[in-house]
């Protein structure tokens, strides 16, 4: 079973204030810590487990500048066999169909049975690239996947619907699945593994290599990023301030006044 996993190198912004750069089309990336997109981490883990069960190879692909190599190395350290990175400053990176087109050019000549990627990326949260890539490749896809069973040429998956409901669907291989968080418990990387991965080659490609120098550039995209901005404050909460003791007393007072204690 040969598996391709599409991953993204993203900043962790969970507990920090995100600033917009002066041009207002991107964020100010200084001082941010980057790592593999959380959903993609689950996809890589799932790919490795399938490889461990059925044999085959895992190839990880990303689009990004050289800082994204750390994410690819992490995947290699976990057990991926090959890594490919597409890099080009001309890419219309906010257009998910452009990203899918680039991945299509990379993946179409690789021998694969299964393509996995995360349901979405934590930065732009489109949930588009995987499905679009599958359509370009002419293979079936399933999104929001929480369970995978492979039996011969068929993959049976549980998809997460709303309100705790799931549906089971079957797809013929080759297929593309977008992986939901919680499907497995991603492994940690050993120091030995990282050291070994430092020696593995990462194949680098640009838009010219892929024949996309006209199609995938910013000017060609029908989607234009006008502006990135901090949303208007709509804070509703009355912030309780003071020492920890004062804060706790105030909370008790509030819930007591409502007869809740």
């Amino acid at each position: 079973m040969n598996i391709v996993v599409c991953v993204k190198h993203v900043p962790d912004v969970s507990e920090i204030e995100v600033k917009v750069d002066p041009v207002k089309k991107d964020i100010d990336k200084s001082g941010l810590v980057f790592d593999i997109n959380e959903w993609d981490d689950y996809a890589v883990e799932e790919a490795l487990r399938i490889k461990e069960k059925f044999g085959g190879t895992v190839t990880v692909v990303t689009i990004g500048d050289e800082s994204a190599d750390s994410t690819l190395r992490k995947c290699l350290a976990k057990g991926a066999d090959n890594a490919i990175r597409v890099t080009d400053p001309r890419i219309a990176s906010w257009d998910p169909l452009v990203i899918a087109k680039i991945l299509y050019k990379v993946v179409k000549d690789i021998h694969y049975d299964l393509i996995l990627t995360g349901v979405q990326a934590s930065d732009d949260g489109y949930s588009v690239v995987g499905q679009a890539l599958a359509e370009m490749l002419g293979i079936p896809h399933a999104t929001l996947v929480k369970k995978i069973e492979i039996d011969g040429g068929i993959v049976r998956v549980n998809r997460e619907l709303e309100g705790g409901l799931e549906e089971i669907i079957e797809l013929s291989l080759p297929a593309l699945l977008t992986i939901q968080t919680g499907i497995n418990e991603p492994r940690y990387v050993s120091i030995m593994g990282v050291r070994k991965a430092m020696r593995k080659e990462i194949k680098i490609l640009n838009l010219d290599d892929l024949g996309l120098a006209r199609e995938a550039v910013k000017e060609a995209s029908p989607i234009e990023m006008v502006e990135l901005y901090v949303p208007p404050v709509e804070r509703k909460a009355e912030i309780i301030t003071g020492s920890v003791d004062e804060v706790a007393s105030k909370i008790v007072e509030i819930i007591k006044s409502r007869g809740l204690v």
Binding site: V119, G125, A132, A134, S221
Partner: peptide, 24 residues
């Protein structure tokens, strides 16, 4: 809709119609 159904459908429909897509 940007739901479990819409997510499954809209991106591939956009590709087959050669239409731009913006989600969520």
């Amino acid at each position: 809709a940007h739901t479990s159904y819409g997510i499954e459908l809209a991106p591939s429909l956009a590709v087959s119609l050669n239409a731009p897509i913006v989600t969520d």
